[in-house]
Simulated scan of single mutants.
Amino acid sequence: MKQTEAQWQSTLRFAVGVTAAFVLCEFLKWLPSFLAAALVAALLGNLPIRPPAKVAIGLLVTISVSALGAFLLSVWFRGMPFVMFGLLAVWMLLAFHKMLGGGSPLPPLLMLICLATIPVITLTAPAYADVLPIALVRGMVVALAIIYLVWLPWPAVQPPKPKPLPPPRETSTLRLALLATAVILPLMLVFLLFGLADVLPVMIASLMIVANFDPRAGGRQALALIVANFGGGMCGMLLYIALSTTPSLWFLAGLLFFATLAFGARISAGGPTAPVYVIACNAMLIIFGSSLGDSAGSFSLWVTRVFQFTVAGTFAVGMMELAWHPPVRLLPLRAGRSSGSSPGKT
């Protein structure tokens, strides 16, 4: 399929922006290095135009307030976990309801990322409690700056795409928000109970999957989300293996540019598969960046990380799909009708 000029410029914005954010954070040793790149991918994948100053300031304020609020909530109620998780559940429910109720999904998504990751890090690794909030705000500043820069050489805007069909009447935003909250909270509890500090990659991937779940799409979309999550993670592993042959910043930039160029072409084309490719690209960035940030990057560690990634994503999709589309229970036939005839008939 031949790309238009606007689609090609959108693809270049995506590839150059994501690569620049990743390489910059890796060069400056800002961990996690994938965070700013993942934010660039999410913003460029959801904003059809260059974000106005009002939108940029709103996103920066949202992530700053959410990061500070999640941090304070974790510190103040560390000794009262039931109260803390109760407040987190209410906050998450409101954020999911806002996201699913229409409007831009980016501010609620940023809020959810803070709520789902900062409390677990604060409780499992108190010495690094202030590191993640700072990294999230810094990543947003870097992402917004790079997005404004990539719009300068490639300013073409794609024509507006047709709006999706409105949800059917039986689709309840509150029900879907309750379900999404009930999926994310158990994942947080698992990380907390087992003392797993690498919550950020898995929770971001799970949140992206839950946020893009469409109850009208059925099992095909659910399977596509799982495959995209796993396939993106495998692409991240392959990039890390390729980089190990020539460990240099320029080679890293080249690998990442061509990989994101392929994803950007699919995302800029739009359509129902665009969110799936955004999830796959984020999975690639998360696995690749977390592998680079771990000095003990053995093959078993990569497999473990991708396994956690895939299990969490499968759990999120499976729970959403089963709760929204429960299997039909077949009722047993009556004894008088099981033989195919009725009394009094020949």
Rank of each mutant, 00 (worst) to 15 (best):
Q3D: 07
Q3E: 12
Q9C: 08
S10E: 11
L12W: 07
F14R: 00
A15H: 03
G17V: 08
G17H: 01
C25S: 14
F27Y: 13
K29L: 11
L31M: 04
L31A: 12
P32H: 02
A37R: 05
G45T: 04
G45P: 03
G45C: 03
R50W: 05
L59D: 06
L60E: 08
T62V: 10
T62N: 06
V65D: 00
A67W: 01
A67Y: 06
W76A: 14
F77V: 10
G79D: 13
P81A: 02
F82I: 13
V83G: 00
A89P: 09
W91G: 14
M99D: 02
G103K: 08
M111V: 03
L112E: 10
C114V: 02
L115K: 04
T117I: 12
L123R: 15
P126V: 06
A127F: 04
A129W: 02
D130N: 09
P133G: 08
P133I: 03
V137M: 10
G139M: 09
M140Q: 13
V141E: 12
V142L: 14
A143N: 09
I146S: 07
Y148V: 10
L149W: 04
L152D: 04
W154T: 10
W154G: 09
A156N: 07
A156E: 12
P164F: 05
P166D: 10
P166I: 05
P167F: 08
S172V: 02
L174C: 03
L179T: 15
A180P: 03
L185T: 11
L187R: 01
M188Y: 07
V190K: 09
G195C: 09
A205N: 12
A205H: 06
L207Q: 06
M208L: 15
I209S: 11
I209A: 13
D214Q: 05
A217C: 00
A224C: 02
V227N: 02
A228C: 00
G231P: 00
M234W: 03
L243I: 05
L252D: 06
L256D: 12
F257Q: 04
L261C: 04
A269H: 05
G270S: 07
P272E: 07
T273A: 14
Y277T: 01
C281E: 13
C281V: 02
N282I: 14
N282M: 15
A283Y: 01
L285T: 09
L285D: 09
I287G: 07
F288I: 04
S290N: 12
L292V: 10
A296K: 01
A296D: 12
A296S: 10
G297W: 00
G297K: 02
F299I: 14
R305W: 05
G313C: 04
F315V: 14
V317S: 14
V317L: 03
G318V: 03
M319R: 06
L322Y: 09
L322T: 13
A323L: 15
W324F: 08
R329D: 00
R337C: 04
G344T: 05
